[in-house]
Design a protein around this nucleic acid. Sequence first.
DNA 1: CGGTATCCTGGGAGATACTG
DNA 2: CAGTATCTCCCAGGATACCG
Lengths: 125, 125
Amino acid sequence: MQPGTPDEDWREDCAPRRVLEIFATKWTSMILHALDARHGGAARTGVLQRSLPGISKKMLTQTLREMENSGLITRHVEGTVPPAVEYRLTALGRRFIEPVELLYRWGRDNADALDQLGSRATGRR
Amino acid sequence: MQPGTPDEDWREDCAPRRVLEIFATKWTSMILHALDARHGGAARTGVLQRSLPGISKKMLTQTLREMENSGLITRHVEGTVPPAVEYRLTALGRRFIEPVELLYRWGRDNADALDQLGSRATGRR
DNA sequence: CGGTATCCTGGGAGATACTG
DNA sequence: CAGTATCTCCCAGGATACCG
């Protein structure tokens, strides 16, 4: 690193920061992973909910809406009764599978390191 | 995937979820990256602050404390006036560099994909 | 220079109940 | 089954000012 090099690794509008923002929202990355690794890219609401222990209907719907607005997934309604709604990864969504799986696997492979972590790792209690 | 396979990818206490918690706290990963990639593993407070555009003194100190409590970094005080404090990555902290850099590089290499993202990606405005 | 003390706000996130 | 509608909590995170 040159002495005079300006510190631009974390410019406020840089791409890495935008990645972090995605991971900052609790359920987004888990939904992406569940859709991809577990359900082959598409799943119905109820199936998704059962894949994400602890998520509420509200947060599921809310997060799915945001992801739809972001272009990560699409929503498909079967005009039946009772209704059947399926969510599918878009091409864009599929691109984001890469970093999500990266983190998922790292976590799985480094559970020991995570166990060493103090409880105040994230500021949560 | 077997039909009867229980959905255990995201058990509430699983390792990948704990990784996500780390990335859920805004500044932690940026500090880890800055310490490592930009400052060789150790840096003083002021230097760090200048490496993280937008961070406030409060959030910097607060996040550093939490990271210290988690065992990711150590704090070293030089008994001088004015005070000089240096933060260093621990062995544990260095392990976490891996996923951090993974995400950082992916963001850098996929800025185009991020540009396609709608503004409601994370629920923030 | 590094740190602390306040004060304040947004909105993430949960719980619950209701509708078609 | 999928989705809304409320209500509430609470805490991450920012702004500002002061201290040794």
